[in-house]
């Protein structure tokens, strides 16, 4: 790496001299300056590309680590890894674990959170960029960003102690009156609080800031000439949003939502606290309980001593890793490189 830079440096000498012609009376100082700036150039290039390589290597190594640790346990697994709802690793010689329920609880809680957060985030972002008076818009945006700074353990405590009892009547109403929809029928828990429903609401609050922040940035960049085009046709404020802001910002909004989804999928401690464990399998209801990938691994972390049982949890982690990777990649594709948050 450094060799290549070494070789390139003399080659670029001639070019640089042409670009920066030194005035003939004082030839000495500019030349020295050029040489030192060349050295600075190669050092900086090395540092910058080095950090870039480091990040890629870190991600690749994490993936590799997960894979290597997971394979022996997967070989020793007696249950179908993808379809078994049980996850028992107590007996090292009789591992029997599957990710069916982990996957379902993870996706159900995250997608439900996304369904709740997306419209609210859209409303907040449009309010901040189009409706709020300038003096209010800045502090309000700070408050929304502050939501992201609250530690997730606090969200967990708040979720189970305050939110869960508060929204239980809503859950009860949904269960009683709309129970014929499979999402709202009685799940595998004896109660209606501490369910995927409760966890989803907590997750929605947690991912609201990222979706709002990304959408707000993109909406605020709507080109002025497009806004003027709509206004000159006699568009009202809402019509300007519909004709100019939303078409321009749609991809950013969706990408921000995908980033939020990625966060929800990986959220650990709040979910562990809020969503109750259940002994029976997931029934595709929002009033089910259970573990997500992340909360299961966290709950078992204190018992990671034997390699084979540990490997079972690592294989679950690997699936989560791939899942968030896919969601984030999707966000990039949709945004077309517009998002950097």
């Amino acid at each position: 790496m450094s060799e290549r830079i070494e070789q390139r440096a003399p080659g670029s000498e001639g070019e640089e001299d042409q670009i920066v012609p030194s005035p003939s009376p004082v030839p000495e100082p500019p030349e020295r300056k050029a040489r030192s700036s060349r050295r600075g150039e190669s050092v900086f290039r090395f540092l910058a590309s080095g950090s870039g390589v480091l990040v890629v290597a870190a991600v690749a190594l994490i993936g590799l680590f997960l894979l290597i640790q997971a394979v022996p346990s997967l070989m020793a697994n007696n249950a179908n890894f993808f379809t078994s709802p049980e996850f028992s690793t107590g007996d090292e010689n009789n591992l029997s674990f599957g990710i069916r329920d982990l996957f379902l609880v993870t996706v159900f809680s995250s997608v439900f959170a996304l369904v709740l957060a997306m419209p609210v985030a859209l409303g907040v972002a449009l309010f901040l960029t189009n409706y709020a008076p300038r003096q209010l818009s800045r502090p309000f945006a700070y408050v929304v960003d502050l939501l992201a700074a609250v530690p997730s353990i606090i969200y967990g405590l708040w979720g189970i102690l305050v939110l869960a009892p508060a929204i239980e009547p809503i859950a009860r109403w949904l269960n009683t009156d709309l129970g014929w929809i499979f999402l709202f029928r009685t799940g595998n828990l004896p109660v209606l609080s501490g369910t995927i429903f409760t966890g989803g609401v907590v997750l929605a609050v947690m991912i609201l800031p990222i979706i709002t922040a990304v959408s707000r940035e993109v909406f605020a960049q709507t080109p002025r000439f497009q806004i003027e085009a709509a206004k000159a046709l006699g568009a009202t404020r809402w019509e300007v949003i519909r004709m100019a802001t939303l078409p321009y910002g749609r991809s950013g909004y969706i990408a921000g939502s995908m980033l939020g989804l990625g966060r929800a999928l990986g959220e650990t401690i709040a979910v562990l606290i809020v969503i109750r464990a259940s002994t029976s399998p997931m029934t595709f209801s929002l009033f089910d309980g259970g573990y997500t990938f992340a909360s299961l691994i966290a709950s078992a972390a204190s018992e990671f001593s034997q390699p084979l049982p540990t490997g079972a949890y690592i294989s679950a982690g690997l699936v989560l890793f791939v899942l968030t990777f896919v969601v984030n990649a999707l966000a990039r594709v949709i945004a077309g490189g517009k998002v950097n948050g």
Binding site: F225, Q226, E228, A229, A230, K231, A232, L233, G234, M243, A244, P247
Partner: peptide
């Protein structure tokens, strides 16, 4: 604005 049309310096169709 609904009865007075305007054309701008930069062409600005909705892209």
């Amino acid at each position: 604005r609904r009865t007075i049309g305007m054309v701008f310096q930069m062409p600005n169709p909705f892209p």
